[in-house]
Design a protein around this nucleic acid. Structure first.
Lengths: 293, 293
DNA sequence: TAAAATCAATCGATAAAACCGATTTAGAGA
DNA sequence: TCTCTAAATCGGTTTTATCGATTGATTTTA
């Protein structure tokens, strides 16, 4: 059993197609087939069922896959550690970010890229749910998202900042002059809110429920610029964290109440090695945030 | 980088001698030398310093070794899991046991070997300190030892039983008729106690201190049968857990006091895969203990 | 329904890598 | 100073990984 075989196996497990997996791995289909077979012979177990020309994962394959992934991850982390040890100052960061963090994050991203030009950065925006799934699949170094009461011991959570939830309305709107707004008033307004995949909406359903209010949700949309376009009409309003509001034609009005703040967290896998570049990014995030106070 | 190279590296790291490591691994010295060099080239770092004809581990080697070991362990655990999944009913258990547990353990060992003749069992007796070191080095599946307030989150601790600490004296001794004895009385006696490497002595120093008593420790000996020989003279006495007393010429007299019981624990590594054979052994230990109540 | 396309397994050949024994080099020990 | 020991190197052999071609069976398309 070698790491190479584990890598082949895991890609085949992911794609459930030997031909495609071989292509992705830059080897021939016959090589992959033979290497998988050799691994199965060594383990005395079938990792895949061959049904016609399709393959499916066996239970043994599912179980073994966990260990195979961990083995490869440990070896890769060892490599990363050595790179850090040598201060090679190169490498790659992969980050998942919720849409609400775009503004502050973009500024941090730019500054980081300036300071560390040799570090490749990959950023994926998405919902909390999607980002957590990918984090658990070791596809990210960390994600930025709202605090969600995760209670998952394999995750490391660090609070970054608290964001105020605000009513977003058109600058031309009569409401725009208000310095703050109550939840009761908000409940009377026609709202266009982010899609249910966003944790934000769940947060608000709870907030309204606590006060026996029912929000008037007319629309649910999976795109913040589109929400801004809708808000600019003056008819609908939305609710976002103040970190998201950057369109000059809209304003964010603070919503009354102690529970109208949400904590943005940095979440990573406890078992994964924490690259120096990742630590540097954390430091920059914290200092960029402090600058905004 | 392949698992084979990690295995070669780790053995060289352990022995700090390429020739010896190669012999143990059943490969030639030149193969090992070349494979290590190839690994170093791939990692862009020296894992060993070559000083004349000797080698020493570099800091990079030390650091990388942790990850290499974890990677190999994960792969091996995967193999073990599959064996269990197939109920191959074979394999190996390695167990560390403190001396105090010899009697109960021996009976469990014999019964387990009878029930599972295809499982190879390796047992090492030793002190708590030694056993913990080896457990942390992944050399045991689990160890049996007294509860030590470990506070090490990577360890899994299960209570097995409570052992009574008793004064061990010669059957011919005047004390032998007593049904119990107080700590004050014990403090007046010439004692031969197990060596400081045993956790037992530390336990007692604390017990005597709590009552402002000072024990009269004349000897410290690292062998329980020898302690029995000394106790049989009638002059000296010792203190052991009742699980250790099996010589017909000595008796164990219960020592008064609530704190004269000690918990025997099963300790294992949380991250290591728990073999079915190990679970079976735990069950047998528990049932053998229940039988003795 | 037949033809075409697709995918995994197999085969034989080739290329690459692991391995080995012999030797060299250099340091340690007697 | 001589002998011994251990790692590095070299050239050759053996083993393994890989490949392209082909086969067989299933799926998709016309």
């Amino acid at each position: 059993m070698e790491l190479r075989q584990l890598k082949y196996f895991l890609k085949a497990k992911e794609l459930l197609n030997f031909t495609e997996a071989a292509n992705v791995l830059n080897i021939s289909q016959s090589t992959l087939s033979q290497q998988i077979k050799q691994l199965e012979d060594e383990l005395h177990v079938l990792l895949f069922n061959r049904i016609g020309k399709r393959i499916t994962l066996t239970e043994a394959g599912e179980v073994f896959g966990e260990y195979a992934a961990q083995s490869i991850n440990r070896a890769n982390d060892g490599l990363l550690v050595l790179q850090d040890l040598k201060n090679l100052n190169k490498g790659k960061i992969t980050i998942g970010v919720i849409y609400s963090m775009r503004i502050l994050f973009a500024r941090t991203l730019i500054e980081f890229a300036r300071q560390y030009p040799n570090i490749k950065i990959q950023v994926v925006f998405g919902t909390t749910k999607d980002l957590l799934e990918k984090l658990n699949a070791n596809e990210f170094d960390f994600i930025l998202t709202f605090h969600e009461n995760l209670k998952e011991p394999h995750l490391k959570c660090q609070a970054l900042l608290k964001a105020n939830m605000v009513l977003v309305t058109a600058r031309k709107s009569a409401l725009a002059q208000k310095k703050s707004i109550s939840l009761d008033e908000v409940a009377q307004l026609p709202l266009a809110l982010p899609f249910s995949g966003y944790s934000t909406i769940h947060f608000f359903v709870q907030s309204f429920s606590r006060k026996n209010l029912e929000p008037n949700i007319c629309m649910e949309i999976n795109d913040i610029p589109t929400l801004f376009e809708i808000v600019k009409t003056g008819h609908w309003h939305t609710i976002l964290s103040d970190t998201s509001v950057n369109d000059p034609e809209v304003v964010g009005i603070p919503i009354d109440g102690k529970n109208m703040k949400r904590t943005i967290m940095i979440i990573s896998l406890k078992e994964a090695y924490e690259k120096k570049a990742v630590k540097k990014f954390y430091e920059l995030l914290a200092s960029m945030h402090a600058k905004n106070l």
